[in-house]
Amino acid sequence: MKARIKFRKNGVMKFIGHLDIMRYFQKAIRRAEIPIAFTSGYSPHMIMSFANPLGVGLTSDGEYFDIELTESIASKEAVRRLNEQMVDGMEIVSFVQIPDDKKSKGMSIVAGADYLSSVKNGSLPEDLAEKLEAFYAQNEICVVKKTKKSEKEVDIRPMIYKLECRDGKIYMRVAAGSVQNLKPELVTEAFVRYLGMDAEEVTFTHHRLETFAESENTESKMILVPLNALGTEIV
């Protein structure tokens, strides 16, 4: 039996890296007495996988990880027990059962994520909505993506699914996952350069609102649904 856990990560917890977050949840699951399954062998470990780990410095309302259970536990009870073990900045939102097949694994089905980006330093033009609309209307938005070994120019426009102004902040829905993954920093940096400014003049904080999977549909239009929508509550 497999379960998907959704959690929020805010406050000082944004400075904690993925490996430490994983260790944190391993301890919390033990203390909450969640019946999690372990691998076999000489060095057994909890069967746990994160959908799309968040970068250091970002906050989120839509983080997910999957676990395997040895026995059933009610969703509400699991959420209650886990939240009793959470520290400030961490909150369990939901606990749902997901299909046992490998195709349902969170890390393999992530297709998108949405973010709300707020100005940290500097300022944006008063006509932000109009400028964003014009920026998004471009046929190409080319940026230089850096890896450990090389740099290459990439057109990120096809990876931006939605871009608009919300209460003076930049809302975006972008590609995420193993096939395509667009960091919000690349979008805001490209936008600042589009405005004719240096990327260091205006910096942002990024908050992930949700993580999505692509829903099955008969049309060519892509439909994204939150990862926890693909599970069912355990009673």
Score class of each variant (00 low, 15 high):
Met107Gly: 10
Ile109Pro: 07
Ala111Trp: 04
Ala113Glu: 13
Asp114Phe: 11
Tyr115Val: 04
Tyr115Phe: 15
Leu116Tyr: 03
Ser117Arg: 02
Lys120Glu: 09
Asn121Thr: 15
Ser123His: 09
Leu124Met: 11
Asp127Asn: 15
Leu128Val: 14
Lys131Ile: 10
Glu133Met: 14
Glu133Asp: 10
Phe135Ala: 10
Tyr136Glu: 05
Gln138Phe: 01
Glu140Gln: 00
Val144Thr: 14
Lys146Tyr: 03
Thr147Gly: 08
Thr147Ile: 01
Ser150Gly: 11
Ser150Val: 07
Glu153Phe: 01
Val154Arg: 07
Met159Pro: 06
Ile160His: 01
Ile160Lys: 05
Lys162Tyr: 04
Lys162Phe: 02
Lys162Trp: 02
Cys165His: 02
Arg166Asp: 07
Asp167Ile: 05
Lys169Arg: 13
Ile170Gln: 10
Ile170Phe: 10
Met172Glu: 12
Val174His: 01
Ser178Thr: 08
Val179Pro: 15
Leu182Val: 07
Leu186Ala: 06
Val187Asn: 05
Glu189Gly: 13
Phe191Leu: 01
Phe191Tyr: 09
Val192Lys: 12
Arg193Trp: 11
Arg193Ala: 08
Met197Phe: 08
Ala199Cys: 13
Thr205Asp: 15
Thr205Glu: 15
His206Trp: 09
His207Thr: 03
Ala213Val: 02
Glu214Met: 02
Ser220Ala: 05
Ile223Gly: 10
Leu224Ser: 06
